[in-house]
């Protein structure tokens, strides 16, 4: 891959890769590491032109899974509290962020790709090798779990307004 091909992709998708990795791992440092790995993989084995966005999303999720499953993963102590120091404008935003932290990583990734990155259910189904109805069912379960966590944390209003 030439520099002329690579740099626009880096500029356009770095924040997507980082954001997805952050939502999955809940660790800014791990998300940065994943970012580096993903773009190195892009250099080594680029996808077909025009397929970069879903490809990057899929590779990012795969790398996150590998990282969290690795027995040699060392959690840096500061990352345990890094996200606790974040501040939000509205209480329900803080509640949502906390509730997301209680979900399974795969559900977090799914919600992030759907509601932040704007992937359609059909696109996500193609990416992850399943059917759109099955993907929709999974999304439904993710939202249901999120609702439950928000209620447990005392954010019933956020639930009633948004879920």
């Amino acid at each position: 891959m030439t520099e002329a091909e690579f740099l626009p992709l880096f500029d356009r998708y770095r924040s997507m890769v980082y954001g997805l990795a952050l939502s999955y791992t809940r660790s800014p440092q791990d998300a940065e590491d994943i970012c580096q790995e993903v773009f190195l993989t892009l250099l080594e084995k680029p996808p077909a032109p025009g397929k970069e966005r879903p490809w990057l999303a899929k590779v990012t999720v795969n790398r996150c899974r590998d990282l969290l499953a690795s027995p040699w993963k060392k959690r840096r102590e500061e990352d345990d509290t890094a996200l606790e120091r974040l501040s939000f404008q509205e209480p329900e935003e803080a509640g949502l962020f906390a509730a997301l932290g209680e979900l399974e990583p795969e559900y977090r990734a799914l919600l992030h790709l759907r509601y932040y990155e704007g992937f359609s259910a059909a696109e996500l189904a193609r990416q992850f090798g399943t059917t759109a109805p099955a993907l929709s069912a999974r999304l439904y379960r993710a939202k249901r779990q999120l609702r439950k966590k928000l209620e447990e944390l005392g954010y019933e209003e956020a639930v009633s307004k948004n879920l």
Binding site: S15, L86, E92, F97, H112, Y115, N162
Partner: peptide, 19 residues
Amino acid sequence: MKKLYQKTFEQALAQTYAP
């Protein structure tokens, strides 16, 4: 849901993204 999620995550990204 989408609007709340986007507002929330934008703030998280702004505070954690690399300089």
